[in-house]
Structure formats: C-alpha cells, structure tokens
Amino acid sequence: MTTFKLIINGKTLKGEITIEAVDAAEAEKIFKQYANDNGIDGEWTYDDATKTFTVTE
C-alpha cells in the first residue's frame, strides 16, 4: 500500500485527506468519490513525485 494525499481547494471546503491505496488509480477513484459526495466539482491535478492529488474549484 502507498500513501496518497488529496488537497482540497474548494469554494466552501478546504483541507487535506490522506489515504492508503494500492496505486494512484485506486486513490483517484476514492478521492473523486469523496469529492462527489461532498459536492466538490473542480479541476484535478496529480503529482506522482509527491503522490498528491489536488482539486480546485
């Protein structure tokens, strides 16, 4: 398992979430479901060097 981080730069929600996932594809699926569940819709980026996803509304 690898640790992945999501940085949320939303209009109403900001913060960071860290999860353990098998790979970046699994982490992205989990993070996008979390964002969808919380009404966050924005532009996604991923930095493989730091294993960090960012979503900006």
Rank of each mutant, 00 (worst) to 15 (best):
Q33Y: 08
D37L: 15
I17N: 13
T18P: 05
I19E: 09
T3S: 06
A49L: 08
W44Q: 11
I17C: 02
D48Y: 11
V22L: 12
D48W: 12
F31M: 04
A21L: 15
E26D: 06
L13A: 01
T2L: 08
D48Q: 15
A21S: 10
E28I: 11
K14R: 06
D23V: 12
D37M: 09
D23H: 12
T12C: 05
Y34W: 09
T2R: 08
E43I: 12
K5Y: 12
A35E: 05
G42T: 00
V22S: 10
T56S: 03
G42L: 00
F31H: 03
Y46F: 09
T50A: 10
K51L: 14
L13F: 09
I30D: 13
F4I: 05
V22N: 12
G39N: 08
I40D: 01
N36C: 01
T56W: 03
T12L: 11
T2E: 12
Y46Q: 15
V22P: 09
I7W: 06
K32N: 11
K32I: 06
I17A: 12
A21R: 06
V55G: 03
I19K: 02
T45L: 05
I19L: 09
I7Q: 06
D48K: 02
T12R: 03
A21V: 15
D41K: 15
D48E: 05
K14L: 13
T50G: 07
E28D: 13
A27N: 00
K5A: 11
I19C: 02
A25G: 04
T12Q: 13
T50Q: 11
G15I: 07
D37T: 12
F31A: 12
N36Q: 06
K32H: 03
D23N: 14
I17L: 06
E28G: 15
V22I: 11
A25N: 02
D37A: 11
I17T: 04
T56C: 02
D48T: 14
T3K: 14
T52H: 15
N9M: 14
A24S: 06
E16S: 02
A25W: 05
I30R: 10
N36A: 14
W44R: 04
E20G: 12
K32L: 04
E28P: 00
E43K: 13
K51P: 09
G42V: 00
W44L: 07
L6N: 06
T12Y: 13
A24G: 08
E26N: 09
E43C: 03
T3W: 05
V55S: 06
Y46D: 03
G15R: 03
T56A: 02
I7H: 06
K14M: 14
E43N: 13
K32G: 08
D41S: 04
E16H: 03
A35K: 04
I8H: 05
Y34M: 11
T54L: 07
E28A: 07
I40F: 09
L6C: 02
A27L: 00
L13V: 04
E16F: 02
L13H: 08
Q33V: 05
K11M: 03
N36L: 12
D47M: 11
I17Q: 14
Q33D: 02
N9C: 03
T45M: 12
Q33T: 13
T2V: 13
D23T: 03
N9P: 01
A27P: 01
I40R: 01
A27V: 12
T18I: 10
I17M: 07
A35Y: 01
A27K: 00
Y34P: 00
E57Q: 03
K32V: 09
I19G: 12
D23E: 13
K32Y: 07
K51T: 10
G15A: 05
N38D: 08
D23I: 12
D41C: 02
T45S: 07
T52W: 08
E20T: 15
N36D: 07
T45K: 13
V55E: 01
K29A: 10
E16R: 02
T3F: 02
D48F: 14
K51V: 07
G39K: 05
D37G: 06
T50F: 06
K29G: 15
I40Q: 05
A35S: 07
T52Y: 12
